[in-house]
Each structure stands twice: as structure tokens, then as C-alpha cells.
Design a binder for these strands. Sequence first.
DNA 1: CAAGTGCCTTTATC
DNA 2: AGATAAAGGCACT
Length: 289
Amino acid sequence: MRVSLNASCPFNLDATLCCGQVFRWDRHDGWWYGVTGESVLKIRQIGDVLEFDNANTDFVKSYFGLKESLPEILSQISKDEHIKNAVDAFNGLRIIHQDPWECLISYICATYKNISAIRKMLFNISVKFGEKIRYEKYDFYTFPTSERLAKANIVELEDCGLGYRAKHLLATAKMVYNSKFDFEHLKQLSYEKAKEKLLNFSGVGLKVADCALLFSLEKFEAFPVDVWVKRAILKHYSSHFTKEFAEKISGKSLTKPEYEQLSFFGRSYFGKYAGYAQEYLYHYERMNH
DNA sequence: CAAGTGCCTTTATC
DNA sequence: AGATAAAGGCACT
């Protein structure tokens, strides 16, 4: 399948898959392979042409956020020179519409880990608890269902390299499975209400909730603040805070009120697409630190 | 090479 | 309410 992207629909597949929002995509021979739902999606971008196999066009457009008007979003968040530089560097980076269950579990695993470690944990979980799919010459695994993870035992999960995250993952899987939790319903709630619901899960604090809201529940005002975003804010937006506050939060992890303050700054300064600004700042900071 | 640091933080306990 | 310590393990220096 081929789709031509016109000038009003900028897209950068590599940046979108490399910027650390998703963890289960791999590149082989110039093509990206990832499991979405029950099947493997194979995709590459040559110039303004998107080529893919094993998926329909509507799904691809919706998964990669191609239905949002990126030029409109980028013009809304381009409030200053620094964000404009980040946007220019990675123009076409889009927020992926991930599966909410997989996204929540991924970011529970992500606490206090780096991206390569997160990828390993999620790979291990998928191999052990997911279904194998053979596609071309590679093996892939579906992301395990809440039922499968709810029925796992804690040692099996720890063996996936999860450490203390194993108990949070298990507790959340049990809550989701036993209550038949409806993630789709969260999309209809306000950012605040949906966040409140997510915070009830074990292993889900402000940062993890913001990631799930932004990357899978279409709450584009969510502004997750991790160490990289904190650094970017201190470097380029410190004038929005007192000198004492900036000094206090540098070089240590954030307390709850400190997190709230930074995240609130992001939402009010960048507006309703603050999450896009966050992702450009995050990626730009990581690539240029 | 050993040891230290950092990692897309949350929770339990004061 | 708000601060503090503890919680895998691995990659990188």
C-alpha cells in the first residue's frame, strides 16, 4: 500500500518512532516493523511517500496521528525561538495513538529506567506472555492481554528484569482485568478526570499518568515532565520561575508539587497541544545535550 | 577494571 | 501537606 503525503501533511516516520514514545518497533533493511494489535505492521517512508504492508490506510493514518493537522498544531506551540528550533529540527514528528493498555504498562515499566532497558523489559514480557507471530523471516510477539498478565506470578515478572516494578504491573493488570476497565471511556473524560482515574492504578503517578494520557488517550494538553524535560525547562524557560525554585529542583528528582508546577507551566504556556511541545523539547534535548 | 552515576519515578513512612 | 528514603539492574564513564 502506498500513500502520498502532501505539503499540508508533514510526517517524519523515523523521528516519530525514534523519539522514545513507543518501545516495540524495530528496523530491518530500511523498513520499520511493529506489532499493532494482533498483527505486524511493516512501513517505510521515501520522501513524501509512505509505503506499508499488512494494514489498511485508515488504520495507519489514525495510528500515526496523520489525521491531526500538524502545521496548525506546530504554529500553536511555536511560542519562542527555542521551541521553533526543536520544531524545525524534527518537523513531522507526530504523537502516535498507542493502545492504552499497552501504553500504561509500558510507562509503569519506564519509571527510573532508560529507553534501552524499557525496550528489553517489554520485549521479555511479550515473549513470555504474548502470542508469537511469524512474519517474513522474523518472529514477533503480541503485547500480552490484561488477563494473561493478571494470571502471571510475581517471580515470572521479576525474571523479565522488572525489579520492584513487577508488583505494580501485576496489581494494575489484576485491577484492569477484574474490573473490565474501559480505557476507551477515558477518552471522553476531561484531562483532569481521566488523570484522576489513572492515578488509582498501582505504579502510576503523575508522570506515568501524563504519558498514558498523551500517548494513548488523545489528551494532547498533557505535559509529562521527566529529567530531560526538566533540564530543557531549566535551560530555556527558567525566567518563568523564581531563581530559588530553579536551583531547588536542579540535580534532584521532583516532588509532587514541583512536578505539578512544571507540568502546569507547560500546559498554560504552550496551550492545548502542550504535549506536542513536550515531545519536541524532549527529543531535541536528548539529541543535543 | 572497579566503582560511581544516571535512568521518560512511585510509594511508604514519617 | 510536604519532605525523605527505598526500590532492580544495566549501560555508560
